[in-house]
Amino acid sequence: MKQASPLLLIDLLKVFAAFVIILHHLASYGQIALDARAFLPGIMDWLFEYGSFAVQIFLVMAGYLATQSLTRFANEKFSSQKLLRVIINRYLRLFAPYVAALIFTIFCAWIARHWVNDEFVGEQETLGQFVAHLFFLQGILGLDSISAGAWYVAIDWQLYSVLAILLISFSSYQTLIWLLSIVAVSSLLYFNRSAQYESYFICFLGSYTLGMLAYLAKNYSDQKIRVLAKLLIVVIGVVIAVSSLQEAWGRNILAWFVALLLLLWGDASYPTLRQGGMNAKRVFLRAIAWASPRSYCAFLIHFAFILLANTIYIAWGLHAHASGSIAIGLMLMVVLCSVVAANYLYRWVEIPATKLKV
């Protein structure tokens, strides 16, 4: 999801969501998480309980960026060959860093099994399980996930494929927007609240559609489509608010709020700073611009370092001290290692893999 011209809000959301997801997994898996929670119960309990909400940021933003790339086909004649090419190229775009991260995670899990007796490490991976991951079928086939982030990559490809089929096939976006909005409300109010649909795009289509509507409302060339998309964002917001009177569903509220942010500031560029020294604002913006394209790789690779950190914690006997400060220190090391590894995964695998196109 690289931008030809970097956009500040998009980059901020990508970096923030990836960072929160990493912290959520750190607060969820292994002996390190247990000892850190005893040391900082408030923060760790919050990350464990609500950190996964950051996935909604990814979903809404993914819908926004997918629509940005797919609307270029709006006025072109339908071609099944072109549609298939778009879907395959999206698969290839996700594939290379994903597979590299999976192989590294399998290696780290093999090391961890020698010392860590914990359910999150999982059983020895099978060839069938690995092949299912290669085709993003592990959830549909009911197989254990090799890595904590693998399920999201599969869902992202499902959602993009569905949106590509609809945006390239429909000649009337008006009809399509109404259809997707109705299905989105069903997703937000029903499918998203049932674990049995978590391996299928329908569970997350509501948040994805909000991102699509935000892009169309802000950037689409046809004014009628822009007005309709804005109207439907408001209507879906009202539906979410009314449904929250019975049961507040924080994920839906967050998804709508992110869509609203994208509608207002989704095309905001980085501010032009005066030439001079490296003040705090300049350092922060440069850090965000650097981290944003690497956020996907950090999301993919961090679980392997959680496995390694828990292995070190137990193999070296550090867990015997039940020290929260040591656990927090190892968490910080996981974050640092994830950032460094993401940089190399991005430079050595993701960038070269952009040449893999049909």
Rank of each mutant, 00 (worst) to 15 (best):
M1R: 02
M1H: 06
L9C: 09
V15R: 12
A18E: 06
F19A: 10
I21V: 15
I21L: 09
I22H: 00
Y29V: 05
G30P: 07
G30I: 08
D35Y: 05
E49K: 13
Y50T: 04
G51K: 01
F58D: 07
V60D: 06
G63N: 10
L70G: 04
L70E: 04
K77M: 13
R85Y: 06
F95L: 13
F95D: 08
F95R: 01
A96G: 05
Y98N: 07
A101D: 11
I106M: 14
F107K: 02
W110C: 06
W115K: 13
E119P: 14
G122N: 05
E123L: 08
Q124V: 06
T126Q: 03
F130V: 13
A132T: 03
L134D: 06
Q138H: 12
Q138A: 12
S145R: 14
A150M: 09
A154V: 00
A154L: 06
W157R: 03
S171P: 05
S172D: 12
S172I: 00
Y173N: 00
L176R: 04
W178G: 04
V183C: 07
L189D: 09
N192C: 04
R193Y: 00
E198D: 14
I202R: 13
I202C: 02
L210F: 02
L216N: 03
N219K: 12
Q223C: 00
V235D: 09
V235Q: 01
G237V: 12
A248T: 13
L262S: 10
G266E: 06
Y270K: 02
A280M: 10
K281R: 15
F284I: 08
I288R: 02
A298K: 00
F299D: 02
I301A: 00
I301D: 05
A304L: 06
W316P: 00
A320K: 15
L330G: 01
M333C: 15
V340L: 15
N343M: 03
Y346H: 14
I351H: 00
A353L: 03
